[in-house]
Amino acid sequence: MTYTLERVARQASEAKELAVHTSRALRDLKRGTKSGLTGRDRFVRHAVLRALATGRPGITYEDVYREVYRERAATGPAMTTMPTWAAELAAVDVGEFLADGVQPLALSRLAAFGRQVSLDGLGSLKIPYRPPGDDVGGWVGEGAPIPVDSLDFGTISISPRKAAAVSTFTNELRKRATADIETLLETALRTDIASVVDTALVDDQPGSALRPAGLRFNVAAVTASTATDPLVAMRADLSKLAGEIMAGGGTMPVFLVNPVQMTSFLFMPNVVYPVIDSAAVPAGMVIAVDGPGFISGNGTAVIDASKDAVLHEDTAPAPIAAGGTAASPTRSLWQTDSIGVRAILDVAWGIPAGRAAWVEGVKW
């Protein structure tokens, strides 16, 4: 009986605190103030909590949250919908994580110029677009009939593809300040995911069940200018790429370049079209994409951690054991007192035919 009364009293107390939190959240919304952390911070903090809770029996990442980020005084119940409590634990703002920070992904910066869709719960999605040269209408005189033509649409099909990365750290990570842990994890996750995603974005490989097609797939390179003056060559190359985009029905070319070529834009401050720099673009190459025609999507992420896993440390990892053959070299996180943090996210992109162009071997 006493136990039941205590439980009822605790539930009543939690309900009261929940009402207080809800009232404060509604007040903040009414005032237009922003509660909680940014999506990037939530994403990173979720990874930090997973890492710090790993290998501690009976300790959840909610417990670590209270230890590290909150005072030990009484707090409201852990709810992923509550600001400044457990909302930070829900790693849902993948797009904001990829688009924000010191080194945003090229995919996220390009996506800002086009159409972005959510991939949550989708197996595939068809996006319509207007092919070039399909305009209707015209000038007509008084009483004259208006020209009529069919409205033909093309479609782009995009399907979620899984990008994943594993970063490992020694257990000394636990001994560092929380801010340092967040910085280390953010840098590691962003670097790993960027290597996977942006490299595929700018390559010439076809789409498959594993990945989307690269922007240069099935697109022939235009010939680079042979002008000896770098600025003259640069103007010629950019004009040619822009012309390819316009001829394909595009309206606004966006240039993707290597940081080496990005420095040349300092001498052309009046470039009217957006420029995105990424180390994933090979030096000497420039890719042009119709910004409004670019379609992209991302879904929620899965963040988890382990100190007991065994990893095949290779750029093309194999199953640890398959058909009696063991992968090599392997690493035991338990034996090396290390932590592995894994990030898995859904991404997809597509572009109508004719709205991407590229050139290599530029002279600037």
Rank of each mutant, 00 (worst) to 15 (best):
Y3G: 12
E6H: 13
A12I: 03
A12Q: 15
E17I: 04
E17F: 11
V20I: 15
T22E: 14
K30L: 13
K34L: 13
K34C: 11
L37N: 06
F43W: 05
V44F: 02
R45T: 11
R45D: 06
A47P: 04
L49P: 01
R50Y: 01
T60D: 03
T60L: 05
Y61Q: 04
D63V: 08
Y65M: 13
Y65D: 13
R66Q: 13
E67M: 10
E67R: 11
E71F: 13
R72P: 09
A86K: 09
A86D: 13
E96K: 09
A99P: 07
R109E: 03
L110V: 03
A111Q: 10
A111M: 06
G114Q: 01
R115E: 12
D120C: 05
G121D: 04
L122K: 12
L122T: 09
I127N: 00
G133N: 07
G133L: 07
D134Q: 15
V140K: 01
V140W: 03
V140D: 09
E142F: 03
A144Q: 14
A144W: 07
P145K: 10
V148F: 01
L151V: 13
D152P: 05
T155M: 14
I156A: 08
S157M: 12
S157R: 13
P160A: 03
R161M: 10
F169K: 03
R174G: 00
T178F: 14
L185S: 06
T187A: 14
A188K: 01
R190K: 14
D192Y: 00
A194I: 10
V196Y: 02
V197M: 02
T199S: 14
A200D: 01
L201F: 09
V202N: 01
D203T: 06
D203Y: 06
D204I: 00
Q205K: 15
P206E: 00
P206V: 00
S208I: 09
R211N: 10
P212Y: 02
A213V: 01
N218Q: 15
T228S: 14
T228I: 12
P230M: 03
A233L: 00
M234E: 04
D237A: 04
L238Y: 07
A242T: 05
E244P: 11
G248K: 07
G249H: 00
T251D: 10
T251F: 05
M252C: 03
V257S: 02
N258S: 12
V260S: 12
F265D: 05
L266G: 11
F267Y: 14
N270F: 07
V271R: 09
V271C: 09
V271Q: 14
Y273E: 11
Y273H: 14
P274A: 08
S278V: 08
S278F: 00
S278A: 11
A279Q: 09
V281L: 00
V281P: 08
A288V: 06
P292C: 04
G299K: 06
G299N: 06
G299W: 07
A301W: 00
V302A: 10
V302G: 02
A305S: 03
D308P: 07
A309Q: 05
H312E: 06
E313N: 11
A322Y: 12
A326P: 04
P329E: 10
S332W: 10
T336W: 06
D337P: 08
D337C: 02
I339W: 00
D346R: 07
I351R: 03
A357E: 00
E360R: 14
E360H: 12
V362I: 05
K363S: 15
